[in-house]
Lab assay of single mutants.
Amino acid sequence: VTVHVNRYTYHFDNPEEAEKFAREMAKRLNMTVEIHGNTLKVE
């Protein structure tokens, strides 16, 4: 599972951890999480 935050890319083996990380980053940056299959984008 890949998480994109701005120009950074993070890889996770565990989808739940990836989503938790993405949501935490989105909250911190006041952004939203978009899910595209195995890719989560924080925008």
Rank of each mutant, 00 (worst) to 15 (best):
V1Q: 03
V1A: 09
V1F: 15
V1M: 11
V1T: 09
V1P: 03
V1W: 15
T2M: 08
T2P: 02
T2K: 08
T2R: 06
T2N: 06
T2Q: 08
T2C: 13
V3R: 01
V3C: 03
V3F: 01
V3K: 01
V3P: 01
H4R: 11
H4T: 12
H4F: 07
H4C: 15
H4L: 13
H4G: 02
V5L: 08
V5C: 13
V5E: 01
V5D: 02
V5A: 03
V5K: 02
N6I: 10
N6V: 07
N6E: 10
N6H: 13
N6D: 11
N6P: 03
N6Q: 11
R7P: 05
R7Y: 10
R7T: 11
R7A: 12
R7E: 12
R7W: 10
R7M: 11
R7D: 12
R7F: 11
Y8E: 12
Y8W: 12
Y8N: 11
Y8R: 13
T9E: 07
T9M: 11
T9L: 11
T9Q: 10
T9C: 13
Y10Q: 02
Y10N: 00
Y10K: 03
Y10P: 00
Y10C: 07
Y10E: 01
Y10H: 03
Y10D: 00
H11L: 09
H11V: 10
H11D: 03
H11Y: 14
H11W: 14
H11T: 09
H11K: 06
H11C: 15
F12E: 00
F12V: 00
F12A: 00
F12D: 00
F12Y: 02
F12M: 01
F12I: 01
D13E: 11
D13M: 09
D13W: 09
D13K: 09
D13T: 12
D13R: 06
D13I: 09
D13P: 07
N14L: 07
N14H: 07
N14W: 05
N14Y: 06
N14I: 07
N14S: 12
N14K: 07
N14G: 06
N14T: 11
P15E: 08
P15H: 14
P15I: 15
P15W: 15
P15Y: 15
E16T: 10
E16S: 10
E16P: 04
E16D: 11
E16H: 10
E17R: 06
E17G: 03
E17Y: 06
E17V: 08
E17F: 06
E17A: 11
E17S: 08
E17I: 08
A18D: 00
A18W: 02
A18Q: 00
A18K: 00
A18I: 01
E19M: 15
E19R: 09
E19L: 15
K20S: 11
K20N: 09
K20E: 11
K20G: 05
K20Q: 11
K20L: 12
F21N: 00
F21M: 02
F21T: 00
F21W: 07
F21I: 01
F21D: 00
F21A: 02
F21V: 01
F21L: 01
F21Y: 03
A22S: 02
A22F: 02
A22D: 00
A22Y: 02
A22K: 01
R23V: 07
R23W: 14
R23G: 04
R23E: 07
R23K: 09
R23D: 05
E24W: 14
E24H: 09
E24G: 07
M25G: 00
M25V: 12
M25Y: 05
M25T: 07
M25D: 00
M25F: 05
A26E: 03
A26G: 04
A26N: 02
A26S: 04
A26T: 03
A26K: 03
K27Y: 09
K27P: 01
K27M: 12
K27S: 11
K27F: 11
K27C: 14
R28T: 06
R28S: 06
R28G: 04
R28A: 10
R28Q: 10
R28C: 14
R28Y: 08
R28P: 01
R28H: 07
L29H: 08
L29G: 05
L29M: 07
L29F: 12
L29C: 15
L29Q: 04
L29V: 03
N30W: 04
N30Y: 04
M31E: 02
M31F: 06
M31T: 13
M31L: 12
M31I: 06
M31P: 01
M31R: 04
M31C: 13
T32L: 08
T32H: 11
T32Y: 08
T32R: 13
V33T: 02
V33A: 02
V33R: 00
V33S: 02
V33Y: 05
E34T: 15
E34G: 07
E34Y: 14
E34R: 15
E34L: 14
I35H: 09
I35V: 12
I35R: 14
I35F: 12
I35S: 07
H36P: 01
H36A: 09
H36S: 11
H36R: 11
H36W: 10
H36Q: 11
H36V: 12
H36K: 10
G37N: 06
G37L: 06
G37W: 04
G37F: 06
G37Q: 06
G37E: 07
G37H: 06
G37Y: 10
N38I: 05
N38D: 09
N38V: 04
N38C: 13
N38M: 06
N38L: 07
N38T: 08
N38G: 07
N38Q: 06
T39G: 07
T39P: 03
T39E: 10
T39N: 10
T39H: 12
T39V: 14
L40K: 03
L40R: 03
L40F: 10
L40N: 04
L40H: 04
L40I: 15
L40W: 09
L40T: 04
L40G: 04
K41W: 15
K41M: 13
K41Q: 08
K41R: 14
K41D: 05
K41S: 12
K41P: 04
V42G: 05
V42A: 03
V42L: 14
V42I: 10
V42T: 04
E43W: 13
E43H: 14
E43I: 15
E43G: 15
